[in-house]
């Protein structure tokens, strides 16, 4: 994974609460065995007409938002299914960060493992960003992962929380599996001192 620190880009508003992962990527596209190519299918049912043309009333189809890379979403973004296809699809569509007041737990975990930044802000900042995006689609924000800040066009910097471990992994561009693989001895020690509870290879006699 590429290291990530500074992300800046235009913002686009999607101020809908409780956007679930079935909207982000409908289940019928989960028959893929790949991570790539899901960007075109992101928000599919909100985004396209039955004949495959863009729906003109979907905000992210407006030409002025086509270059945006920071999505300003409603509360509780990413609820529902655990599909990691959701951050894959969002990244594929060109998003680098999503801003909301709250993220569903599994979505947030999945996003962090793929370098899609889930930025949690207070409701006032969220609303301000939505208004800015609606009034002036040229508005850009800059995010510093190192400083854990999102800077608004007026210069105001808003801090956002992120767990230290995920932050370091993103800054260094390392994935989390490596950390676990290095703990082999600890895991073996745990296994040796705890009775194994099931054996899927062998029903009990």
């Amino acid at each position: 994974m590429e290291p990530i620190n500074k992300v800046s880009g235009k913002i686009a508003p999607l101020p809908i609460n409780d956007i679930d992962t079935d909207q982000i990527i409908p289940a019928r596209f989960l028959k893929t065995t790949d991570k790539n190519g899901l960007g075109k299918q992101a928000f599919f049912d909100w985004r396209y007409n039955a004949d495959g043309t863009d729906k003109s009333d979907f905000v992210l189809n407006q030409p002025e938002y086509k270059e945006a890379s920071v999505l300003i979403a409603g509360n509780n973004f990413g609820c529902g299914s655990s599909r990691e296809h959701a951050p894959w699809a969002l990244l594929g569509m060109g998003w680098k960060a999503v801003v909301s007041t709250e993220f569903a737990d599994i979505f947030r975990n999945n996003a962090l493992k793929n370098g899609l930044l889930p930025i949690i802000v207070d409701e006032e900042t969220q609303q301000q960003l939505v208004s800015l995006a609606e009034e002036d689609p040229e508005t850009t924000v800059s995010i510093s992962l190192e400083d854990q800040t999102l800077q608004l066009p007026d210069g105001r910097k808003v801090e956002f929380p992120i767990d230290e471990f995920s932050k370091q992994c993103l800054l260094k561009g390392v994935d989390q599996m490596g950390y676990l693989l290095d703990l082999d001895d600890d895991i073996t020690a745990y296994e040796e001192s705890n009775v194994k509870r099931v054996n899927t290879h062998q029903p009990t006699a």
Partner: peptide, 21 residues
């Protein structure tokens, strides 16, 4: 429930990185 990256973590190490909820 876990995501696919975490499925990989469990396949490889039988463990997960978790913050106590």
């Amino acid at each position: 429930g876990i995501g696919t990256s975490e499925v990989g973590h469990v396949l490889a190490t039988q463990t997960l990185l978790q913050y106590q909820p």
